[in-house]
Structures are given as structure tokens and as C-alpha cells.
Write a protein that binds this DNA or RNA. Sequence first.
DNA 1: CCAGCAGCCTGAAAGC
DNA 2: TGCTTTCAGGCTGCTG
Length: 336
Amino acid sequence: MRLQPPLGLCSATLNNVPELPEVETIRRQLDPLLRDCSVQQVWAFDSPKFTSAHQALGSRLQGVRRRGKYLLIDLDPAPDPSPAPALAPAPAQHPDRNHVVESSPGVAARELIVHLGMTGRLSVSSTGSEHPSTTVSSLTSWEQSTRVESSSSQRHLRAVWVLDDGRSLFFDDVRRFGRIAVVAAGEHQSLATLAALGPEPFDDDFTADYLRQQINSTKRSVKAQLLSQRVVAGLGNIYVDEALWRAQVHPAAKRITKVQSMKLRRDIQEVIAVAINNGGTTLRNYRDAEGSAGSNQHHLQCYGRAGQDCLRCGTTLRRILIDARATVFCPRCQRR
DNA sequence: CCAGCAGCCTGAAAGC
DNA sequence: TGCTTTCAGGCTGCTG
């Protein structure tokens, strides 16, 4: 039997947010499920954060990509001969852009962008499911809000895309921190964080020299920098704490050495790779596209372990606030 | 331009 | 037991 820490020390209220490994897990599951499906009907929760979902109506879903914590679903015009009602003509603006979209005249390639926020979940109903969403007619009642509000499983539904084969893609999000947008392909200005996103952890240009230059070029802490998404894409509170613990860098440090930058880059990559292999981290909310929990929570060495012993030196891990974020670190291993 | 911070939002847990 | 307060967190937009 495993001994539990005193109640006051364990993080009983931890909510984990989908970060890069969780979003990548969902992407891998959704990609083969959605490819080449057309959107026949859309329902969206009445909020500016979600109503853009309607703009995917009539489009065909191509591959599901990921940038940082954002899911990008490529949209092509549906092959159906009748013109899709939601498709806008090619925008006349953006004459400065180099990449002219080579598509059928008058129709620009677009992307359906989904950010899961803190509690967002995407799932696909199986064919022939008795879920009310799988029939187009039932959407009418959803729009009247009666069924959406009636059951707990549908209470936090924010968008539904009904596909041409009878299945549906669902987005539910308890706390409404998620976001849906449809934009012209590659045009991300309306999503500031996405537009300014740094390199992916496994990109060639995410080098130790680049990392050190970025961290050392501002007055902000290394933790705040890594959370900003501008230095490297996809890290959130869990994996920043894990990577800094492994690299033995104090989260409040404002400068790192060359040796630290080499280790930190490598540890960011390892923490992310291990988490992806484990299907992400589930502390409370996170579920993948199949409704399953990840298993990486069993591999966390620092995050959520405040008050417990450091697995490296035995010192009691401390919890502090940095950038208004709960931060766990080892005061002995991670000296400033 | 940059850094810091309030606000968004809800449910669970702690506190009274 | 039941009510109130606190907390978690990614991102946006405002302020100094």
C-alpha cells in the first residue's frame, strides 16, 4: 500500500490542461478519422469564441495538423457540385502575402483552428451511434437548447460538426477557455499567440544557442519565457516544471548558461517525447479523442509533488508562484 | 515595446 | 449540513 502525503501537501485540486503531448495525442487519433469527410451541418454554442465553427459548413476536412497547442484542420471546398453556402469569396485583402492560394477560382483554402483551452475535449461519434447528434434532424432540437442542457454529458457542448457519413465531431469545454476559428490558410493574425509561436521542440531551429539567446534577452524569468509560447511552442505549466527540474534550472532564473541551455533543450525534448509516448498526462480533466486518460501522470517527477521528497536529492520540493502560476521546484537541485 | 496583471469561466475542495 | 471562499490555468487585452 502506498503512503499518501498529508492532505494539505497533496495537490488535490490539480487540473491539467492540454499541452503539446495531449494535443498531439488527439491529433494522431483524429487525423485518420476525419480525413476526406465533409461537414454537412454545424451547431455552435452562442458565444463569439465558438460561433466560427459554422464557417466550416460545406467544407471537406483534410489532414489534422498541430502547432503548439493548436489543432489545425485543413479545409477544402466540398466536392459537391452545389455551392457550399458558408464559403466566402477569396478575400481581396492581403495583397502583401507571398503565398497565393492555388485553389479553384473564388474559393480560398482555409483552416479550422481549435484551441482546447483548459477543459476542451474533441471526440468523434462512431457510425450508427444512438447519440442524438448523429442525426441531422436532432440538431434542430439542439438549436432550441433543450437537449444540450438536458444531460450532463451534453451540458458543456460548444460545437458539433455533422459529417457526411453520419458521424459527428464534438467539441465540449466546461470552462469555455477554448476557442474555435476558421481562417484563410496560414493567416493567423487574428490569433496573436499562434501567429507569434516559437519553434516546435523538435524543430531543427530549436537549438541550445537559440534557447539561451531568447531566455537571456529579456528580464523575465525562464519559467515565464517558456510559458509564453514565443520561445518554444506547446509547453504549459506541467512540462515547464518537469523540464526545469530535470535540467536543474531555477524557475525564477533570468539567465542561463551555455551548459544549462544545452541540457534544458534536451530535457524539454525528452519530457515531451515521454509524455507523447504515454498518451499525455491526466490529472483530472484531460481525455483523448477516444475518451481515454493518458498515463504520463505516473511519470511526473516534479509537477504536483510540492511537499514531497525530490527524487534526485531527497530535499522537500517547494511550491512558489511565478507569473501567477503554481511552480514546484527543488530548492537544492535548482539553485539560482 | 515590454512586463505584469486582471479577467474570462466553472467545479471541486477547503474553510466557516 | 450547507453556504461561501479559494484555487486551478492559457490566453487576451489593458495598464504602467
